[in-house]
């Protein structure tokens, strides 16, 4: 404990803003997002990378931010739930979760949104089984999932028709 705490400089771009911080090597990416830059939309729900509440998009891919160190994201570009809306307008995916009642308590929702967004970016016409595969690492205890599948399908349709 008498050792001096090591700190490492990182530059991480989150939702378009570049943040320069010096962080402990052990700092998790989710701690960086929630505590260093105070974006609390990304949540923590477990300690074994099971629940996916902390899912963010790093360099175009959905990652569980509790399973990466902040230093691993150095130089990377991150999108969190706070970056989905544009000038106050919700993204169609956010809206679809609302209209399809794809959320109840809302705690898992940010992770669900980020995982689904990557799917829709890669697969504009997903089948239900694609959605299930994509969200198999995101736990929801409230909805029973059916409305989440409906929400992603509705969003896919809205995105195609927009």
């Amino acid at each position: 404990m008498s050792e001096q705490i090591q700190r490492i400089p990182v530059e991480i771009t989150v939702n378009g803003t570049c943040y320069k911080r010096e962080v402990e090597p052990r700092m998790l990416l989710v701690e960086f997002i929630r505590e260093e830059i105070n974006l609390t939309g990304t949540h923590i729900g477990c300690d074994t990378s099971y629940c996916g509440a902390c899912t963010v998009i790093l360099d175009g891919n959905a990652v569980k931010s509790c399973t990466l160190f902040a230093v691993q994201a150095d130089g990377g570009e991150i999108l969190t739930v706070e970056g989905l809306e544009k000038e106050g307008e919700l993204h169609p995916l956010q809206q679809a979760f609302s209209t399809e009642h794809g959320l109840q308590c809302g705690y898992c929702t940010p992770g669900m949104l980020m995982s689904s967004l990557v799917l829709l970016a890669e697969k504009p016409e997903p089948e239900d089984k694609d959605i299930r595969k994509c969200l198999s690492g995101n736990l929801c205890r409230c909805t029973g999932y059916q409305n989440i599948i409906n929400a992603v399908q509705t969003a896919a349709k809205d995105l195609r028709e927009a």
């Binding site: 974006l39 609390t40 939309g41 990304t42 999108l79 969190t80 739930v81 706070e82 970056g83 989905l84 809306e85 544009k86 307008e89 919700l90 993204h91 169609p92 956010q94 809206q95 979760f97 609302s98 209209t99 399809e100 009642h101 959320l103 809302g106 705690y107 929702t109 940010p110 949104l113 967004l117 829709l120 970016a121 809205d158 995105l159 927009a162």
Partner: peptide, 24 residues
């Protein structure tokens, strides 16, 4: 995909506006 917007601004629940924005 982030550039796409939806014309119909319908919302489901009152709670959702803050929750889907990560602002709960």
């Amino acid at each position: 995909i982030l550039q796409v917007t939806r014309k119909d601004k319908a919302m489901g629940r009152k709670e959702d506006s803050r929750l889907v924005r990560g602002r709960g």
